[in-house]
Design a protein around this nucleic acid. Structure first.
Lengths: 320, 320
DNA sequence: TTGTACGCGTTATCAG
DNA sequence: CTGATAACGCGTACAA
């Protein structure tokens, strides 16, 4: 490139990065850029500057609408700051997580946004093998060494259950994801609420897939005969509705249903699905904000941003 | 690292990449790796090897379930080949597309998977400023210079419309995305089918957002009084169902509805949404396969993989 | 203002 | 089998 423009490499570098260059030479460089279709080499630039301007986004599965929404916000904010986003799906598999975290280290990412499994969450807390800025999303430990942003799951689950109790439900079941802290916290809020009301605890942990939720509900219906059920996420909710349809149960008369995540279809299914809406945009925004802050100032005390959910009542939980 | 292990850089490189090294020195290197938590620097590796092992994925919006599904498959296959995926959302905005394509060039991506707007699609065909392997996804031009994989949109739309005609519908409307070739093709298949049956063409192009679809249907219902409508994608379908609900129309008696994309909720809404299911996994798989082939052999003739959709009939289009 | 020289961390080539 | 050396493309201190 330098010789294509007939100037020194240094001049090219300066011209392209707005350094002090005479108008004449600047023209020469710009002309050469167009002539040969020159594009600066980011690998070289990163190696030299020791700044990759890359953020790693490691989530369980981008098809989970929650992560989809978060990733979109993260990508928007990243590119607004001239950063790129590398996407990783771990399928809640600690081995894949370990692999990706190693990769992100080799990538020398500027920062990392991570929704870890319970396993990895504890491992990272014990020995902090990541020396890059990290923000946990959706899952976190109290008084962690890492920044985190998440829904107040315990509180949100409690609100959801109390709503069902207020609707007169007496046998409230719950299906919770078995691999993430999120599921545990929502279970906790659920269990506290039903216990406090003197109702039985009918919660169980399942893999967060539609089919697992479907069969779990069938079993539950054949044994415990709940009159209401809450789902820890939208995939599980889908499975429940599928089973409800197959069993020809009426909602909410036979079974009230409520869930987490206000998917677009929540208002389209009959009679409308009651949900806790997560502020996904705010969560993504907070994650990037925490990350930017920490990148600028690594010495910061770890911060946890806890956001509230919004209860949206629809027909699926209407007073019986 | 080299001096931490007490050997030469070359030996470190060989040891880590399985080259010919004595067992003794290999131990030394491995020990040093653990001791200092060494991770190879990918920027340096890429600069030196001129191989970034990175694929760029440029789509309109990762929140569109079609792209979500494709991206998941792409990411899976990429990492199975030791490649990373950089994600870009263009919002169907040609300027953002241009920006990202430039970025991907600077990134020296090994390959590019791209769902371009109509604008960019034509521009790239005219002057091929991308000299990396490119696979178009979801949108493409006939006899293009690029590889492509997509649904046979004309055919699929025709099938969908013919199904509605067979159900006795006489005034079939259609809402199609206004920014992508996909919308145009589906319109074409729609128009052909209704014309052939001697029915009026009530199709229109809208921005592919839920709210636009909602107001479009309200207007349509107030003027053309269709007895059926098809939606070019799942967001548009959602808007239609929302408006239908607000207008208290009965499906399918007042208005039959059919759409593209078999989202999980399609079977959950009453009375079930008739759709053309896109083979999203196959599409993602084919895209990566085409890309791998072209990376291995850049001289290949451009290929277009056209996949068929599957008509899934549900209650929303039941014979009136 | 401009050019020269060096180094970022790696791999490939070439001697030894 | 191993080490010195060069080069990938860029940015920057330093000299001119």
């Amino acid at each position: 490139m330098a010789r294509a423009a007939g100037v020194s490499p240094a001049t090219v570098s300066r011209a392209l990065s707005g350094g002090p260059v005479s108008a004449e030479l600047r023209k020469k460089v710009e002309k050469a850029v167009k002539a040969i279709g020159y594009r600066p080499n980011l690998s070289a630039r990163r190696l030299r500057s020791q700044n990759t301007k890359t953020i790693g986004l490691v989530v369980a599965d981008i098809r989970n609408p929650f992560f989809t929404a978060v990733s979109r916000v993260v990508e928007d904010m990243a590119y607004a700051q001239g950063m790129r986003v590398v996407l990783c799906n771990t399928d809640e598999n600690p081995e894949r997580e370990a692999f990706y975290l190693r990769s992100m280290q080799e990538e020398r990412v500027t920062g990392l946004i991570l929704a870890p499994t319970e396993t990895t969450l504890h491992k990272l807390e014990k020995d902090p093998l990541l020396e890059v800025p990290v923000v946990m999303v959706d899952r976190y430990l109290a008084s962690s060494r890492y920044d985190a942003v998440a829904l107040d799951n315990v509180q949100a689950a409690r609100v959801l259950v109390e709503h069902l109790i207020a609707s007169g439900k007496k046998r409230i079941a719950g299906l919770f994801g078995n691999s993430s802290r999120t599921g545990q916290e929502r279970y906790q809020g659920y269990a506290e609420a039903v216990t406090k009301a003197g109702l039985p605890v009918l919660g169980q942990f399942i893999r967060p897939y539609t089919s697992d939720a479907e069969s779990a509900l069938r079993q539950l219906w054949a044994s415990e005969k709940p009159d209401a059920i809450i789902a820890s996420n939208s995939l599980t909710a889908g499975g429940i509705l599928r089973a409800v349809k197959a069993l020809k149960l009426r909602i909410p008369e036979d079974l009230a249903v409520a869930a987490f995540d206000n998917e677009p279809w929540a208002s389209l299914v009959e009679p409308g699905l009651t949900v806790i809406a997560q502020p996904v945009d705010d969560i993504g925004h907070a994650a990037m904000q925490l990350l930017s802050d920490r990148i600028q100032n690594p010495g910061l005390q770890p911060r946890t941003v806890m956001l509230g959910g919004e209860l949206i009542v629809r027909g699926s939980s209407a007073t019986g």
